[in-house]
Simulated scan of single mutants.
Amino acid sequence: MTTKLPAAVRDRALQIAHHEMGHYVVARALGFETGGVTLTVTKDLRHQGGASITLVRPISSMEAMKEHLEARMMVLLAGAMAQTLPSKPSAAKRVDKPKATAILKGEQGAEQDYAKIRELQHLLRNIAYPDTDPASGERIAAELKSMTDRVWIRTQEIIEDQAGTIAKLALALVDGMALVEQWGRAADTYEVVFAGPMLERLRAVQAIASINIGSPEKSRHVFET
Rank of each mutant, 00 (worst) to 15 (best):
M1T: 06
M1F: 10
L5Y: 04
A13M: 03
V25N: 08
E33C: 11
K43W: 10
L45W: 03
G49C: 02
P58Q: 05
I59R: 11
S60A: 14
M62V: 13
K66T: 15
K66V: 13
E67M: 10
E70W: 05
M73K: 02
V75F: 07
L76A: 09
G79I: 04
G79F: 00
A80W: 00
M81E: 07
T84R: 05
S90H: 03
S90C: 02
D96V: 04
K97I: 15
T101W: 10
I103E: 08
L104R: 01
K105R: 13
A110N: 08
K116H: 12
I117D: 01
H122N: 11
L123M: 11
Y129C: 00
T132H: 01
A135D: 14
A135F: 07
S136R: 01
G137C: 06
A141C: 09
A142V: 09
L144C: 12
L144I: 14
M147C: 09
M147H: 08
D161G: 06
T165K: 11
A170L: 06
A172K: 14
V174A: 01
M177I: 06
V180S: 08
E181I: 13
R185D: 12
A187D: 14
A187K: 07
T189R: 11
F194N: 07
G196E: 04
M198F: 12
Q206Y: 03
A207Q: 13
I208E: 02
I211E: 10
V222Y: 02
T225K: 00
